[in-house]
Amino acid sequence: MDPASAFNQSVMVKVLPKGSTQPGWTYVGISPQKVEAISLVTGEGKVLYEVTVGGEIAVNSVSSGTRFRGVAATGHLFLFAERAGADQISLVVCGFSGKLPIERPMTIDGTVVMGPVLSDELVALCSPQAVGIYDLRNKKSVQMQLPSSFEPLLVRKQGGLHLPLGSIPLSAVRGAAGLEAWIGGEEYGIPGFLIAEVELKRWRFERTPREATVSNNLDGTLCVAAEDEIRILGTKKWKSDKVSLQAGMPATVTEEFLLAFEESGRLGRHHLSLSKRGRGTVGSLTFEDPECRGETICGTSVSSSSVGVAYLLPGIDKGLKVAHWDLEQTTQA
């Protein structure tokens, strides 16, 4: 796989058998020239898409790997952004089977882009000038220009929203007023989220605490952890118990569980609180490793049977370390 794929948002997806030559769990990576896949079942790799002469996928290269860009996927499709002329970017939709025609259903103004991100069959792309949403259900797209007072967070910056490695501060939801895009950034230097009611061409800005940590849930929604509160943007709030959260560390919410880092009171010691919807706190997990911190953590995962925490190790030869618990046996690996 192209080394540049390590500098972009990748995705693991269960490719559905219908029409696919490589079904099952698959890792999909992207670089400026191609989209590649590696089967997690067989280990076989293949090129899914390659640009034509003069074309360029709108993602990070090895020399410029700091923007929030990458690839998104469903069981049938993979999606990415491609440059469309000097000052426009298009969403590209391809099928894993290779038999469906390649579609470019949405083009937005801009030379740099954030996304795409996928949530509830909605695909969002954002540039400094505009945001667009493509609905996979009805194959329609909507977009709007962003207010001049708002600067989307296209790259990480000191003193703004904190994002774990691999997170993207963008989401699309089906709101009461139609399709909405939630975009992390700053209004007049104040960090928060622009809530863009794209169909109605209306917007409002919601501030977040400067120490807020923003992460992506598996369903594409955004989770904000700050001080003693955890919120799911664009949905009903799921507040944690009144506990002190560990600064810089992400929270993860699923339909059933909430996983959060609580302040442990000791450097290098991490205390994970596991809550269940409607039942409150149902367990806690503790591990010690000073290398796991806000600058190195890549994300967390939780299910009815396991909890995982992934983080980078420092140094020239960086590697990925995973702390994992089997909840059925309550053991750490």
Rank of each mutant, 00 (worst) to 15 (best):
A86M: 10
G70C: 10
K99R: 13
V113K: 00
C94M: 09
S90R: 15
D135E: 07
S90L: 04
T66H: 12
N60L: 06
I57K: 06
I108R: 12
N138M: 04
V71I: 15
G115T: 11
V47T: 15
S119M: 01
R83W: 01
E103W: 01
R83D: 05
A81S: 08
C94Y: 04
V117Y: 08
P105A: 13
Y134H: 08
V47S: 09
G110F: 03
G65H: 06
T74Q: 09
K46Y: 11
L79S: 01
P101W: 01
N138R: 14
A124I: 11
I57R: 04
I108L: 13
T107S: 14
S119T: 06
A58S: 09
A84N: 15
H76Q: 08
G55R: 13
V59G: 07
P105G: 02
L77M: 01
R137S: 10
E103Q: 05
V71F: 01
V112H: 06
G110K: 07
G115D: 11
N60R: 09
R137W: 06
G132M: 06
V62W: 05
V92A: 00
E82R: 08
G54H: 15
F78L: 02
G75R: 03
K46C: 05
R83Q: 12
S63M: 14
G85K: 10
N60C: 11
I133E: 06
A58C: 12
L77T: 02
P116T: 03
G132C: 00
V113P: 09
V62N: 11
S64I: 05
T52K: 15
N60P: 06
L48Y: 12
R137T: 14
V62I: 11
T111P: 10
P128C: 03
A73V: 04
S64L: 07
Q88L: 09
D135R: 09
S119P: 04
